[in-house]
Design a protein around this nucleic acid. Structure first.
Lengths: 216, 216
DNA sequence: TGGCATTTGTTCCTATTTTCACAAAGTATA
DNA sequence: TATACTTTGTGAAAATAGGAACAAATGCCA
C-alpha cells in the first residue's frame, strides 16, 4: 500500500511529519515551562533523536516560523503548531468499551491538556451502564448512533474486544464518526474518508522481542 | 536520524518489516481458527491493507515459506513466524508504575497468549506495594534493580509519570533491561544496544485531529 | 559600519522502501 | 502428456523519505 500522503494546497508531506509535529509540540511545552524563550532546531532535536534538518523541513511545509541567526520563539511556535494540528479548539470524543483499558482512558488526565474532552462512553454490560466515571456517564451501546449524532462527535476510541470492533466501527461511521483510535488488535476496514490510527501493544512488544532475539 | 535497520547475515530489512510480521501472524492465527489450511499472499493482504508483493518480500528476508501455485500453509507459516519473531519461547517482563494504565496492563490477558508473562510490577506508592493484581505482586520500586537482576528480566513496560520515566529507564538499563515499551509521553535516552518502542496516545490522537481538520 | 558567528529555509543528492513485473514452479484438467 | 491457470520469489524500477550543504538573514561586538 502507498504510505498515506497528505496534500494541502499543492504541498505534500507524510503522516510521519504530522506525528513529529506532535513530538515537537510536546517538547516545546516543556521548554516554555522552563521559561526558555528561544530554541534552535539543533537544540530541540537533540532531545528527540531527530535531525535538525528534519525539524526545519517539517515546519517548512506550513510556513516560516523561525528567525535566522536566532532560532524559534518557543511560545509563538507552540501557538502555530497547535493551530496547524487543529488542537487550538476543543475536540469531543467518544469511548466505546469500558473494560480495563477503556476505564483507564476515561480517567486519563492527559487528554484534557490537549483540548480533547471525552464526552461519552458506551458499553454493553448492564452493570456498567448508567455509572459515571470521572464525570462521564456510561451509555448503553444500543444508543450509540443516537448519542453520537446528537452530540455531533467526530472522533472515537475503540477499546472493545476484537470480535466486535468491526461492527462497532461500522456503526460509528454510519453515525458520523470520521476518526478512530483503535486499541483492538484487528485491522479495521473503513471507507477512505475515515481515518484510523492503531495502537497495538502486542505488535510493539513482538517487535522488541524480535530485536532482543536477533542481536549481533 | 537514520531509520533503524536490521541486518542478519548480510540480509537487511527495516523494523517496519518486523511490525508487519506481527500483523501477518495475527491474521494467520485467525485463519487457523477458521480451519483454513492454505492462503495466498493476495487473500491475506486484502484483510490488512498491505500489498501482496510487500507480504512476499517481507517473508523473503527470512526464507521461502510458500508453494508456487498454491500459497502458504497457514499452520506452518504461523510456526515459522513465531520462530522468526522469537515468541516460541516465554518472555518474562516487568511493569513499572501501577497507575490506571499499569494496572489495566497487569490484568490484560492479551499478553499470555503470545508467550509474554508479566513477572513483576513496581510502584512507589506504599499503599500499592505488597498488593497482588492478577497474581502479580507489586514490589517497592526501591527494589527494582535487585528484583530485575535476580529474575533476569530483559523487557519492561514503563507506565510511570513522564517526569520520572528517564530515571526509571536508567535504572532498568543498569539492571540489565534491554527492551522497553514506553507509555510515558517523553523521548527516552538510552545507549544504542537498548531498544525502545513508544506508545503515545496523545500523538496518535493529534494526528487524527490534524487529518480531520485538513480534509479536502 | 564591517566583519564574524549563528541559524534558518531550501535545494539537491542519497538512501531506503515499496511496487512492478516476470520467470520459475506448482496445480488441474482433459 | 500437454495446456491453461495460479502463485511464489525476486531483480529492477519507481516512489518516498532523509540529510548534507549552502545562500540568505539576523545578531553581536569591536
Amino acid at each position: 500500500m502507498p504510505k498515506s500522503k497528505i496534500c494541502i494546497r499543492k504541498i505534500c508531506f507524510s503522516v510521519e511529519t504530522v506525528k513529529r509535529l506532535s513530538l515537537y509540540l510536546r517538547d516545546l511545552r516543556k521548554l516554555a515551562k522552563k521559561k526558555i524563550q528561544f530554541i534552535s532546531s539543533n537544540k530541540i532535536t537533540q532531545l528527540l533523536n531527530i535531525s535538525p534538518a528534519q525539524f526545519r523541513k517539517d515546519l517548512s511545509y506550513f510556513g516560516e516560523f523561525g528567525k535566522r541567526g536566532v532560532g524559534y520563539e518557543v511560545e509563538k511556535l507552540i501557538k502555530k503548531l497547535e493551530e496547524i494540528l487543529g488542537i487550538n479548539k476543543e475536540w469531543r470524543i467518544a469511548v466505546v468499551g469500558v473494560g480495563r483499558l477503556g476505564s483507564a482512558l476515561l480517567r486519563f488526565e492527559g487528554f484534557s491538556k490537549f483540548n480533547i474532552k471525552i464526552k461519552t462512553a458506551f458499553d454493553i454490560d448492564k452493570k456498567k451502564i448508567g455509572k459515571v466515571i470521572n464525570g462521564i456517564k456510561i451509555e448503553d451501546v444500543g444508543n450509540l448512533e443516537r448519542v453520537i449524532k446528537k452530540e455531533k462527535i467526530k472522533l472515537s476510541l475503540i477499546c472493545t474486544p476484537p470480535q466486535v470492533a468491526q461492527d462497532i466501527t461500522n456503526r460509528l461511521v454510519s453515525a458520523g464518526i470520521r476518526g478512530i483510535l483503535n486499541f483492538a488488535p484487528v485491522a479495521l476496514k473503513v471507507a477512505n474518508n475515515v481515518f484510523i490510527s492503531n495502537v497495538d501493544m502486542a505488535c510493539e512488544l513482538e517487535q522488541l522481542i524480535f530485536l532482543l532475539n536477533n542481536e549481533r
